[in-house]
């Protein structure tokens, strides 16, 4: 699981052009909150594409996206659930 989380963080840094490194992103940091990564809706679309492309998880609708994309933990859980 920790390896998956690291891969997710690395994907976020690369795909979203984040200024920080993967190690600087915590598992719990809220993705869209100004107190977290402060991502916006275009980032959200990019993240959906990246998660499908890199991890095979197709996020079908806005509700599923809201559930899965809260933080790195929730993304990892959604990917794991999709694999099992």
């Amino acid at each position: 699981m920790s390896e998956l989380k690291q891969q997710i963080k690395q994907a976020m840094v690369e795909e979203l052009m984040l200024p920080q490194t993967a190690d600087e992103i915590s598992d719990e940091a809220p993705i869209f909150s100004p107190q977290g990564l402060a991502l916006d809706s275009v980032d959200a679309l990019q993240l959906v594409v990246a998660i499908e492309k890199r991890f095979g998880l197709k996020i079908a609708n806005a509700e599923a996206a809201r559930t899965a994309m809260q933080n790195v933990n929730s993304i990892a859980a959604a990917i794991e659930a999709n694999r099992s």
Partner: peptide, 10 residues
């Protein structure tokens, strides 16, 4: 095209 980056296009 399904994986084209929405972050790049704008």
């Amino acid at each position: 095209p399904m994986f084209a980056s929405p972050i790049l296009f704008p």
